[in-house]
Amino acid sequence: MSFLKKLFGGNGREGLSSSEVVEHEGFMIYPEPTNEGGTYRVSARIEKVINDELRSQRLLRADTSSNEEEASRTSILKAKQVIDERGEKLFDGPSA
């Protein structure tokens, strides 16, 4: 079963459906809030295929929420903001 999740874009977290993956300006956003002992840190994976190569960048914010769904929504909003500000430059350098 986890093989299928990886194959079809799941990240192995229970409860996250593929419908929560969001496309924005050609980028794919995967909300992945990090559980930190009862609070969830805003976090997402941003991906885009550029020149036939899958590029990926992790967004990790200081923002937290006590609710995982709210943290997922905020992760998507923050990822969209970063995409709008940086575009493909998001993938320049090791910690872009």
Rank of each mutant, 00 (worst) to 15 (best):
F3S: 10
F3L: 10
F3P: 00
K5V: 08
K6H: 10
F8E: 04
F8S: 05
G9T: 13
G9N: 12
G12E: 15
G12A: 14
G12K: 14
R13V: 14
G15N: 14
L16T: 15
S17E: 15
S19L: 15
V21Q: 11
V21L: 14
V22K: 12
V22E: 14
V22W: 06
E23W: 10
E25W: 04
G26W: 08
G26E: 10
F27K: 09
M28Q: 13
P31S: 09
P33Y: 14
P33R: 15
T39R: 15
Y40K: 07
R41H: 02
R41Q: 10
S43T: 09
A44E: 07
R45M: 10
E47C: 05
K48L: 01
K48E: 01
V49L: 02
V49D: 02
V49S: 03
D52S: 12
D52A: 06
D52Y: 03
E53I: 06
L54S: 02
S56A: 06
L59Q: 00
R61I: 00
A62S: 05
A62L: 03
S66A: 05
N67C: 08
N67V: 12
E69T: 07
E70F: 02
A71G: 07
R73H: 10
S75N: 11
S75Q: 10
S75H: 08
S75K: 08
I76Q: 13
Q81Y: 11
V82M: 10
V82P: 00
I83T: 11
D84W: 01
E85H: 05
G87W: 02
F91M: 03
D92Y: 08
G93Y: 07
A96D: 13
